[in-house]
Amino acid sequence: MKSEIKGSQAFSYVEVELAPDEVIVTESDAMSSMDADIELKARLNGGLFKGLLRKYLGGESLFVNHFSNPTNTPKKMTIVQGTPGEICHRKLDDEVYYLQPGAFIACSPGITLGLEFAGLVSFISREGLFRLKMSGSGDLYFGAYGALLEREVDGEYIVDSSHLVAYEPGIKLKLQLAGGIFSSLFGGEGLVTRVEGKGKIIIQSRSITGLAGWLNPKF
């Protein structure tokens, strides 16, 4: 699958070229434009029950779209995310990768979307009660509001709540106060997420919750 991420970090979008018979799986409503010959099939996101779980607990949609190219020439399409921000590409090679709810955009059909209980810690730190488990081999596209920063963790690392986007399976989440009681309550950091283990994590530079918190007093 040929693809290119364009539009800078502020407004990333993915240009995909589907070869004949190639398929790409996308989040609901992720297509912004495509060649009229491309075929679309909506599939339940892994069975009705699992799909419903994913919709109400994983922040994803009940259906995912399978776009395929039934012709014998390459066809182009464009995939976007709902919020302004950066999109990242990652190649999975028979491995597992965790995404935060809502971060999934598209993947090749060799990757399975699963939902996993992320633990109470994740819920309290506003990272969601569930996480998306991507497993298999192929191309994965994910994104978030803001730019994405990659950090190599070996040991401990602290991330502000609702800023974690994705992490490798070697990473565990823990909850803690940002500093002492005083700085946690008055320093604007509140609860933070402590990640532990060895692997790479992806952080988003902005959060929708933060934007809403700034907008709310203005109404």
Binding site: F11, D29, S32, T78, V80, G82, T83, A212, F219
Partner: peptide, 19 residues
């Protein structure tokens, strides 16, 4: 000419969090 983002989609992501 297309725009990569849709203001309505962004609105849907933001509205549930607004008071």
């Amino acid at each position: 000419w297309c725009q990569s983002h849709n203001a309505n989609s962004f609105g849907h992501a933001l509205t549930p969090k607004l008071r």
